[in-house]
Each structure stands twice: as structure tokens, then as C-alpha cells.
Amino acid sequence: MEAAMGLMRRMPPRHSETALSALLSLLPQHSSDLLSQVDLPLQVLCDVDIGKEFILCEYNRDADSYRSPWSNKYHPLLEDALYPSSELRKLEIEANDIFSIYRDQYYEGGISSVYMWEDDNEGFVACFLIKKDGSKNAQGRRGCLEEGAWDAIHVIEVGPEQEGTTRYCLTSTVMLSLTTDDESSGTFSLSGSLRRQMNMNLPVADGHLCNMGKMIEEMEGKLRNSLDQVYFGKTREMVCTLRPPAEVAQMRLPDS
């Protein structure tokens, strides 16, 4: 398992699907571990009743069907399927509504879905998903990306209420890839994935949605920032180490 995760850490992120399916076929005995530890770009399906797309993941799956957050129906239809309690479903509907607005403000497009379900210890779990295709043929406003994908998965475990506060454990993964291509500079492609955790105790009085939303917003900002500043920055630094820009090379000359 450790070696398998080591391989995932080195394979190009844009080939993570191929890498995971290769590992699954080599290590069928570890398939559930692999599937829970490796995140993949999200898939979508269209809710036939509402005519709106929703995102698929392990958390809205039962057998081979997926539950749409819009109509609450499984696609394809499934009898005796699992549903959240009506109280939780109400929160789920509200979360989907508000998260759509959040998503629109940050992503200027994209698809989002929120799923919730009861867990064993008096709390519940919520999963917030966002998928955005920012390529110029899709929803890239600035039209500069030949290819561009952003997938975010936020899973929050919400603990039981204790003296007015609740513990929220957030695990977030962002996967992205972007490619620009033009005559003068050829193809330039960056891809990556990051996973981070954040735990907070917050007053219940503010409402679960408000608490979870703030945590996700903060986390997404952090992840985006570290991708932009740290991770992309490190690859840029590497390029400049390999072939320093002229000014730097000249500055070094007197020493050598």
C-alpha cells in the first residue's frame, strides 16, 4: 500500500486515472484502501427530471446508482436505496442552493453538488464537490486555456453538539490541470493535486451551513494560494535553476 501511494505521488497528476486503475488491477486486495486514499477527477451525470448535471462520488452512490441532489432520485433508478433523513435532506437542499451561488461567484461557471448523510456517532457527514472546466471551449471566460480542469472535494465530519459548539473535521482535495498552447511558446502545462485537513470547534448557533461554508472558503483559498505561490513557484524556480535568465547568468560571471 505504501509503495502504491509512493507511485501515485510520482506519476503525472493528469494520468492519475490510468495510474489508479493500473494499481487496482495489480492490487485487487487493496482496492477499497486505494479508492479511499486516491482522489480522481470527478464525473458528472445529468438529472433527467430536472435537466441539471450533478457530480458523482462514493458518497452519493448506492450499488451502481447515484443520487441526484436536485431531485433526490437515484440514476439509474434503484429500489430500497439509502436516503438521508428528511431533516438532513432539508439541510442538503439548502446547502446545494447556497453552494451554487458560492461556486458561481468564485468559479464563474462550473458544477457543484452537496451530499449529506448520518454517521454512526450522532453527527453527520457532508461532502461538497465542485467541478470546473475552464478551457476556452467550455467555461473559460478569458479564453486562454487549451485545456483546464479544477476538481475540488471537501468532506466535513460534523460531530455531535457539546455545550453549544460542534467539532468540524474538513478534508479537502484539489486536482487541477491547465495547458496553454500558442505558436510562439508551444505547450505549457501544469498539473497537480493537493490534500489538506483542517479541524475547528465552532458555535452551533451560527448554523452548520455558515460554519462549513466558511471553513471551505478558507481552505479553498489556502489551497489555491499554495498551488499558485508554492507549488507552481517551485517549478518556476526549477526552470530558472536549469537555465538561469540572462541577467542572473551575467551577475554570476564575475565570480566564476
Binding site: Q105, T180, N225
Partner: peptide, 30 residues
């Protein structure tokens, strides 16, 4: 041109995936 691709990241290329701030330019009013 590689340097330029990097310089374009924050304000154009990356922005097409996710903005740094919402279109409203303030944090989301949770």
C-alpha cells in the same frame, strides 16, 4: 516565454479555473 506563461498564471490562466476572490470582490456572506 516560459517566464511569461508563469506571469500570466495568477491573473488570467489560473483565474479561468478559480478566482482568488469572488466576482463581488468580498468574501462570501455565509
Amino acid at each position: 516565454s516560459l517566464e511569461e506563461s508563469y506571469l500570466n498564471l495568477p491573473d488570467t490562466t489560473f483565474k479561468d479555473l478559480r478566482r482568488k476572490l469572488p466576482v463581488t470582490r468580498t468574501l462570501f456572506p455565509w
